[in-house]
Design a protein around this nucleic acid. Structure first.
Lengths: 117, 117
DNA sequence: TACGTAGATTGATGGCGGTCGATCTGGACC
DNA sequence: GGTCCAGATCGACCGCCATCAATCTACGTA
Protein backbone atom coordinates (compact mmCIF):
# COMPACT_ATOMS: atom_id res chain seq x y z
CA UNK A 1 0.00 0.00 0.00
CA UNK A 2 1.37 3.34 -0.98
CA UNK A 3 1.60 6.21 1.37
CA UNK A 4 1.48 9.88 0.53
CA UNK A 5 -1.85 11.67 0.10
CA UNK A 6 -2.46 14.84 -1.77
CA UNK A 7 -5.70 15.54 -0.07
CA UNK A 8 -6.30 18.94 1.31
CA UNK A 9 -4.78 21.95 2.99
CA UNK A 10 -4.66 19.81 6.10
CA UNK A 11 -4.42 22.78 8.39
CA UNK A 12 -3.15 21.91 11.81
CA UNK A 13 -5.53 21.97 14.69
CA UNK A 14 -5.20 25.09 16.81
CA UNK A 15 -3.19 24.61 19.93
CA UNK A 16 -4.87 23.83 23.22
CA UNK A 17 -6.12 20.70 24.87
CA UNK A 18 -5.41 17.69 22.72
CA UNK A 19 -8.08 15.03 22.54
CA UNK A 20 -5.84 12.26 21.24
CA UNK A 21 -2.67 11.41 19.43
CA UNK A 22 -1.37 13.79 16.76
CA UNK A 23 -3.07 13.89 13.38
CA UNK A 24 -3.21 10.62 11.57
CA UNK A 25 -3.03 10.55 7.82
CA UNK A 26 -4.74 8.06 5.56
CA UNK A 27 -2.33 5.37 4.43
CA UNK A 28 -3.92 5.16 1.03
CA UNK A 29 -3.61 8.06 -1.33
CA UNK A 30 -6.55 9.74 -2.88
CA UNK A 31 -6.18 8.17 -6.31
CA UNK A 32 -5.98 4.70 -4.86
CA UNK A 33 -8.94 5.37 -2.59
CA UNK A 34 -10.97 6.54 -5.54
CA UNK A 35 -10.15 3.40 -7.49
CA UNK A 36 -11.04 1.07 -4.65
CA UNK A 37 -14.18 3.06 -3.88
CA UNK A 38 -15.19 2.70 -7.52
CA UNK A 39 -14.93 -1.07 -7.19
CA UNK A 40 -16.77 -1.09 -3.88
CA UNK A 41 -19.50 1.12 -5.29
CA UNK A 42 -20.03 -1.26 -8.19
CA UNK A 43 -20.37 -4.11 -5.69
CA UNK A 44 -22.71 -2.04 -3.54
CA UNK A 45 -25.85 -3.49 -5.04
CA UNK A 46 -27.20 -6.95 -4.19
CA UNK A 47 -27.95 -7.76 -7.82
CA UNK A 48 -24.47 -6.85 -9.02
CA UNK A 49 -22.86 -8.67 -6.12
CA UNK A 50 -24.77 -11.83 -7.00
CA UNK A 51 -23.92 -11.42 -10.66
CA UNK A 52 -20.24 -11.30 -9.78
CA UNK A 53 -20.73 -14.26 -7.47
CA UNK A 54 -22.26 -16.35 -10.24
CA UNK A 55 -19.54 -15.40 -12.69
CA UNK A 56 -16.79 -16.12 -10.18
CA UNK A 57 -18.12 -19.50 -9.12
CA UNK A 58 -18.67 -20.48 -12.71
CA UNK A 59 -15.07 -20.39 -13.84
CA UNK A 60 -15.64 -19.43 -17.44
CA UNK A 61 -17.97 -17.37 -19.53
CA UNK A 62 -21.68 -17.22 -18.79
CA UNK A 63 -24.35 -16.27 -21.30
CA UNK A 64 -26.56 -13.29 -20.50
CA UNK A 65 -29.61 -15.39 -21.26
CA UNK A 66 -28.66 -17.52 -18.27
CA UNK A 67 -28.26 -14.54 -15.99
CA UNK A 68 -31.48 -12.67 -16.68
CA UNK A 69 -33.90 -15.35 -15.40
CA UNK A 70 -32.07 -15.45 -12.06
CA UNK A 71 -33.58 -12.14 -11.02
CA UNK A 72 -37.03 -10.63 -10.91
CA UNK A 73 -35.80 -7.85 -13.13
CA UNK A 74 -36.30 -6.84 -16.70
CA UNK A 75 -33.67 -7.67 -19.30
CA UNK A 76 -32.63 -4.02 -19.74
CA UNK A 77 -32.09 -3.66 -16.00
CA UNK A 78 -29.83 -6.70 -15.83
CA UNK A 79 -28.01 -5.39 -18.89
CA UNK A 80 -27.55 -2.09 -17.08
CA UNK A 81 -26.04 -3.79 -14.04
CA UNK A 82 -23.66 -5.73 -16.26
CA UNK A 83 -22.63 -2.49 -17.91
CA UNK A 84 -21.87 -0.93 -14.54
CA UNK A 85 -19.68 -3.91 -13.65
CA UNK A 86 -18.01 -3.73 -17.04
CA UNK A 87 -17.25 -0.02 -16.74
CA UNK A 88 -15.81 -0.62 -13.29
CA UNK A 89 -13.39 -3.11 -14.82
CA UNK A 90 -14.76 -6.01 -12.81
CA UNK A 91 -16.18 -8.07 -15.66
CA UNK A 92 -15.57 -8.37 -19.36
CA UNK A 93 -17.88 -9.37 -22.17
CA UNK A 94 -17.58 -11.12 -25.45
CA UNK A 95 -20.13 -11.61 -28.19
CA UNK A 96 -20.49 -14.85 -30.10
CA UNK A 97 -23.23 -14.70 -32.66
CA UNK A 98 -26.49 -13.84 -31.01
CA UNK A 99 -25.27 -14.40 -27.51
CA UNK A 100 -23.11 -12.39 -25.19
CA UNK A 101 -20.87 -13.97 -22.60
CA UNK A 102 -19.60 -12.35 -19.43
CA UNK A 103 -16.67 -13.28 -17.25
CA UNK A 104 -14.85 -11.90 -14.23
CA UNK A 105 -11.60 -10.17 -15.03
CA UNK A 106 -8.85 -11.89 -13.02
CA UNK A 107 -7.40 -9.82 -10.18
CA UNK A 108 -9.91 -7.05 -10.73
CA UNK A 109 -10.90 -7.42 -7.10
CA UNK A 110 -7.38 -8.04 -5.88
CA UNK A 111 -6.54 -4.54 -4.73
CA UNK A 112 -9.72 -4.12 -2.71
CA UNK A 113 -9.42 -7.63 -1.35
CA UNK A 114 -5.86 -6.98 -0.22
CA UNK A 115 -6.81 -3.74 1.45
CA UNK A 116 -9.64 -5.44 3.32
CA UNK A 117 -7.38 -8.14 4.69
CA UNK B 1 -20.70 -19.49 2.09
CA UNK B 2 -24.27 -20.66 2.23
CA UNK B 3 -26.15 -21.85 -0.76
CA UNK B 4 -29.87 -21.51 -1.32
CA UNK B 5 -31.36 -18.36 -2.78
CA UNK B 6 -34.94 -17.30 -2.60
CA UNK B 7 -34.67 -14.90 -5.43
CA UNK B 8 -37.26 -15.09 -8.12
CA UNK B 9 -39.58 -17.29 -10.14
CA UNK B 10 -36.48 -18.42 -11.97
CA UNK B 11 -38.45 -19.65 -14.93
CA UNK B 12 -36.53 -22.02 -17.11
CA UNK B 13 -35.35 -20.84 -20.48
CA UNK B 14 -37.54 -22.08 -23.29
CA UNK B 15 -36.17 -25.08 -25.06
CA UNK B 16 -34.10 -24.70 -28.19
CA UNK B 17 -30.49 -23.99 -28.91
CA UNK B 18 -28.51 -23.71 -25.73
CA UNK B 19 -25.86 -21.03 -25.56
CA UNK B 20 -23.96 -22.47 -22.61
CA UNK B 21 -24.12 -24.73 -19.60
CA UNK B 22 -27.38 -25.12 -17.68
CA UNK B 23 -28.54 -22.32 -15.42
CA UNK B 24 -26.11 -21.33 -12.72
CA UNK B 25 -27.40 -20.13 -9.41
CA UNK B 26 -25.75 -17.56 -7.19
CA UNK B 27 -23.85 -19.22 -4.39
CA UNK B 28 -24.73 -16.51 -1.93
CA UNK B 29 -28.29 -16.14 -0.85
CA UNK B 30 -30.17 -12.93 -1.22
CA UNK B 31 -29.96 -11.91 2.43
CA UNK B 32 -26.24 -12.45 2.53
CA UNK B 33 -25.80 -10.58 -0.72
CA UNK B 34 -27.78 -7.66 0.66
CA UNK B 35 -25.63 -7.56 3.77
CA UNK B 36 -22.35 -7.60 1.85
CA UNK B 37 -23.68 -5.09 -0.67
CA UNK B 38 -24.56 -2.81 2.24
CA UNK B 39 -20.96 -2.94 3.42
CA UNK B 40 -19.60 -2.43 -0.08
CA UNK B 41 -21.94 0.48 -0.64
CA UNK B 42 -20.73 2.17 2.52
CA UNK B 43 -17.16 1.75 1.28
CA UNK B 44 -18.13 3.02 -2.16
CA UNK B 45 -17.04 6.58 -1.47
CA UNK B 46 -13.42 7.73 -1.43
CA UNK B 47 -13.90 9.80 1.71
CA UNK B 48 -15.46 6.94 3.66
CA UNK B 49 -12.86 4.50 2.41
CA UNK B 50 -10.08 6.78 3.63
CA UNK B 51 -11.87 7.31 6.93
CA UNK B 52 -11.96 3.55 7.45
CA UNK B 53 -8.33 3.34 6.38
CA UNK B 54 -7.27 5.89 8.98
CA UNK B 55 -9.27 4.20 11.71
CA UNK B 56 -7.90 0.78 10.81
CA UNK B 57 -4.28 1.83 10.67
CA UNK B 58 -4.64 3.71 13.93
CA UNK B 59 -5.38 0.77 16.15
CA UNK B 60 -7.53 2.53 18.70
CA UNK B 61 -10.01 5.34 18.90
CA UNK B 62 -9.58 8.50 16.86
CA UNK B 63 -11.14 11.86 17.70
CA UNK B 64 -13.44 13.43 15.14
CA UNK B 65 -11.51 16.67 15.45
CA UNK B 66 -8.53 14.82 13.99
CA UNK B 67 -10.52 13.45 11.09
CA UNK B 68 -12.26 16.58 9.85
CA UNK B 69 -9.09 18.50 8.85
CA UNK B 70 -7.96 15.60 6.68
CA UNK B 71 -10.53 16.45 4.06
CA UNK B 72 -11.60 19.52 2.17
CA UNK B 73 -15.09 19.03 3.51
CA UNK B 74 -17.28 20.72 6.04
CA UNK B 75 -17.68 19.27 9.49
CA UNK B 76 -21.32 18.25 8.90
CA UNK B 77 -20.32 16.38 5.76
CA UNK B 78 -17.63 14.39 7.55
CA UNK B 79 -20.11 13.73 10.33
CA UNK B 80 -22.55 12.46 7.73
CA UNK B 81 -20.00 10.04 6.30
CA UNK B 82 -19.18 8.75 9.76
CA UNK B 83 -22.88 8.22 10.35
CA UNK B 84 -23.17 6.17 7.16
CA UNK B 85 -20.26 4.00 8.28
CA UNK B 86 -21.80 3.67 11.72
CA UNK B 87 -25.19 2.64 10.38
CA UNK B 88 -23.50 0.08 8.16
CA UNK B 89 -21.94 -1.45 11.26
CA UNK B 90 -18.42 -0.75 10.11
CA UNK B 91 -17.41 1.72 12.79
CA UNK B 92 -18.52 2.54 16.31
CA UNK B 93 -18.42 5.75 18.26
CA UNK B 94 -17.99 6.77 21.82
CA UNK B 95 -18.27 10.17 23.47
CA UNK B 96 -15.88 11.35 26.13
CA UNK B 97 -16.69 14.81 27.34
CA UNK B 98 -16.62 17.23 24.46
CA UNK B 99 -14.99 14.87 22.03
CA UNK B 100 -16.24 11.91 20.06
CA UNK B 101 -14.04 8.96 19.22
CA UNK B 102 -14.52 6.54 16.36
CA UNK B 103 -13.11 3.07 15.88
CA UNK B 104 -13.45 0.20 13.46
CA UNK B 105 -15.62 -2.64 14.68
CA UNK B 106 -13.52 -5.81 14.57
CA UNK B 107 -14.51 -8.31 11.89
CA UNK B 108 -17.09 -5.96 10.45
CA UNK B 109 -15.37 -6.33 7.10
CA UNK B 110 -14.63 -10.01 7.56
CA UNK B 111 -17.52 -11.43 5.59
CA UNK B 112 -16.94 -9.22 2.56
CA UNK B 113 -13.21 -9.78 2.78
CA UNK B 114 -13.69 -13.54 2.86
CA UNK B 115 -16.02 -13.45 -0.12
CA UNK B 116 -13.56 -11.39 -2.10
CA UNK B 117 -10.72 -13.83 -1.48
C1' DT C 1 -34.90 -10.22 -48.79
C1' DA C 2 -37.64 -10.79 -44.84
C1' DC C 3 -38.35 -12.31 -40.23
C1' DG C 4 -37.25 -13.67 -35.50
C1' DT C 5 -34.30 -13.34 -31.61
C1' DA C 6 -30.48 -11.78 -28.02
C1' DG C 7 -28.90 -8.06 -26.10
C1' DA C 8 -27.84 -3.04 -25.82
C1' DT C 9 -29.50 1.61 -25.78
C1' DT C 10 -32.77 5.36 -24.99
C1' DG C 11 -35.98 8.22 -22.40
C1' DA C 12 -38.69 8.87 -18.51
C1' DT C 13 -39.54 8.59 -13.58
C1' DG C 14 -39.06 8.28 -8.71
C1' DG C 15 -35.96 7.87 -5.07
C1' DC C 16 -31.48 8.09 -2.99
C1' DG C 17 -26.98 10.40 -1.81
C1' DG C 18 -23.27 14.11 -1.16
C1' DT C 19 -22.79 18.65 0.12
C1' DC C 20 -23.40 22.90 2.60
C1' DG C 21 -25.20 26.62 5.88
C1' DA C 22 -27.80 27.01 9.82
C1' DT C 23 -29.24 25.27 13.96
C1' DC C 24 -29.49 22.20 17.92
C1' DT C 25 -27.40 19.47 21.91
C1' DG C 26 -24.72 18.78 25.70
C1' DG C 27 -20.47 19.05 28.23
C1' DA C 28 -16.65 22.27 30.19
C1' DC C 29 -15.55 26.33 32.47
C1' DC C 30 -15.96 30.89 34.42
C1' DG D 1 -26.60 31.22 35.07
C1' DG D 2 -23.93 32.44 30.93
C1' DT D 3 -20.59 31.45 27.46
C1' DC D 4 -17.83 28.71 24.50
C1' DC D 5 -16.84 24.67 22.01
C1' DA D 6 -17.26 19.77 19.60
C1' DG D 7 -20.18 17.31 17.27
C1' DA D 8 -24.79 15.91 15.53
C1' DT D 9 -28.95 17.08 13.16
C1' DC D 10 -31.95 19.64 9.94
C1' DG D 11 -33.42 21.57 5.52
C1' DA D 12 -32.46 22.46 0.98
C1' DC D 13 -30.30 21.76 -3.43
C1' DC D 14 -28.76 19.07 -7.10
C1' DG D 15 -26.94 15.30 -9.38
C1' DC D 16 -26.80 10.45 -9.69
C1' DC D 17 -28.96 5.78 -9.80
C1' DA D 18 -32.28 1.72 -10.27
C1' DT D 19 -35.97 0.56 -12.89
C1' DC D 20 -39.05 -0.12 -16.79
C1' DA D 21 -41.31 0.14 -21.53
C1' DA D 22 -40.07 1.05 -25.95
C1' DT D 23 -36.85 0.98 -29.44
C1' DC D 24 -32.62 -0.09 -31.85
C1' DT D 25 -28.80 -3.19 -33.51
C1' DA D 26 -26.84 -7.13 -35.25
C1' DC D 27 -26.85 -11.80 -36.21
C1' DG D 28 -29.12 -16.31 -37.78
C1' DT D 29 -32.25 -18.47 -40.62
C1' DA D 30 -35.79 -19.41 -43.90
Amino acid sequence: MAVDLDLAPKQKRPAGERCCEPVVYPDVERQQAERMAEIAKALGDPVRLQLVDVLRKHAGKVCVCELVPLFELSQPTVSHHLKVLREAGIVGSERQGLWAYYYVIPDALGELSAWLS
